[in-house]
Amino acid sequence: MTDTMKVSEIEPTELAPAMETTGKRGIRWTAVAMWAVALGVLALLGWGLIKANAPRPEVGEVAPNFTVEFFTGYEWQGESSVALDDLRGKVVVLNFWASWCVECRYEADVLENASRQYAPDEVVFLGVAYADVEPNSLAYMQEFGVSYPHAPDLGTRISNSYEITGVPETFVIGPDGKIVYVHIGPINQTTLNRVIAQAMEGGS
């Protein structure tokens, strides 16, 4: 063992070139790339989760914007599509319904009567068919003689952004774009008239 030496006796300078050739820099970049990928994936997942679990818009908050494409024959002032932001300055009664929803039938006439009661340039009634089959939606609207604008909730994007709990559900949005009132379940004429008057006065 006399011809051997301890590792600690090897001059660090002898090892330095070899250490450089081990690709230390390359390993560092690999680690950086791995961390970048991992953090990127986590960030995207987090963003997706936050987006998916957006809080339900409350009274006093600005109503989430959306664009609807109306059913043929149920357009708004001849327009085949409209964005909520385009309706600023008007009260918007946004009602979610479905043809398969039994309780929606209780309020169908109430909404139709109210839509005829107010001037279209002051109060816009907007029906959104949630998770419904188009022929059934059309049959439902014909059954109740609906005349105000109606649109399908394509991709369930509107109901998702409003985080509805079910149908029927009604949001009354003021001229400033803020939510004035939220009603879960069938709405009655008295309540509807009261909250529309409140929205027209600009109070939330």
Binding site: T4, V7, I10, L15, T22
Partner: peptide, 28 residues
Amino acid sequence: VVAATAVVPANPSPASAASVPQPATPLE
């Protein structure tokens, strides 16, 4: 590194020094 401890000669010739496997980390 373990193998190097066992085989490194006291006065390594240039040829044998070149064949000494190098540790992955600095000795310090």
